[in-house]
Amino acid sequence: MRMKPADRRFHWSFLILFLMVVVIAALAIGQYTLAPSAVLKALLAPAIALPDTSSDAGIVIWNLRLPRIAAGLLVGAALAAAGTAYQGMFRNPLVSPDILGVSAGAGLGASLAILLGLSLPFVQGLAFAGGLIAVGTVYWVSGLVRRHDPILVLVLSGVAVGTLFGAGISLIKVLADPSVQLPSITFWLLGGLNGASREDLMLALPLVLAGLVPMILLRWHVNLLALADEEAAALGVDVHKLRRILIVAATLMTAAAVSIAGIVGWVGLVIPHVARLIAGSEFSRLLPTSILLGAGFLVIADTLARSVASIELPLGILTALVGAPAFIWLLARTGRSG
């Protein structure tokens, strides 16, 4: 599986080029029609000190599109990284970042805030808290059960707690005012980056980084989780501690992403696969590949979400619509050549 240095250079330059193309295209596309020259001018305005940042183009580019693209990059990267870590940790390719209930918890928190008529910071705050509480509960419950395979217990507790929180969401939907609150809850659960602002980024970025740094530092150890627990322990890895750190890191990232974007499925499940098809399963190469792909993919999906129709399409729908066919195509293609 080892790549030659030349291959490796090509691999990274290709991914970075892909991301740049995506970001540039996303900057140029939108409902507010701007000529490419206007986009360029608005982008360069602060650098060459043109007093032009208050123009419409400046506002669209600097206050709306750039924060939204940055939020897309952040959310995509976070979900893909969390998915990659979980798939490695659970030794299971069907695992996604919400395996431990983080999405259900966040959904419950946000729905509750909307039901209570709270303002946006509270909706985001309760979503984040809900995600942490759900995963905390899963971890606590799994600690109570000692006689089974710890991975299996974690996954099963995740399913149970996720179902419980999901039932809570349904209950809130039933209780919500059908003409005012229910649509807000539904839109939130479908995910979306409309309204993403610099404030959102400032809140989510540190949390995502706080989750990412331990993953990067522990990248060599994560490979060993592919072995059975005893074998990994024999190689000097404290499996339980490593697992705990990874869960905390992935949960922080996912909860932060979900709190600003709502529930966006599919990215955390499929992007790690695509990354594995491209880069192999060695975690130190897989993680950055996954992050770059996830970030680019989410920006593509979000650009479509805001430009295809005359209204915003929910991001959660777009990621599935774009992601599923692309994934099937990739699967078929690599199957043939391999």
Binding site: Q31, Y32, V60, L64, G117, S119, L120, N194, P314
Partner: peptide, 28 residues
């Protein structure tokens, strides 16, 4: 009936007036 829109669209549509019943949004 209901749909989501973006601020970019609002900037394009330039509404003369905004009305809401959401105190949270009004603050925002």
């Amino acid at each position: 009936n209901l749909a989501q829109v973006s601020l970019e669209q609002l900037l394009h549509w330039q509404p003369d007036m905004i009305v809401t019943q959401s105190a949270g949004f009004f603050e925002l």
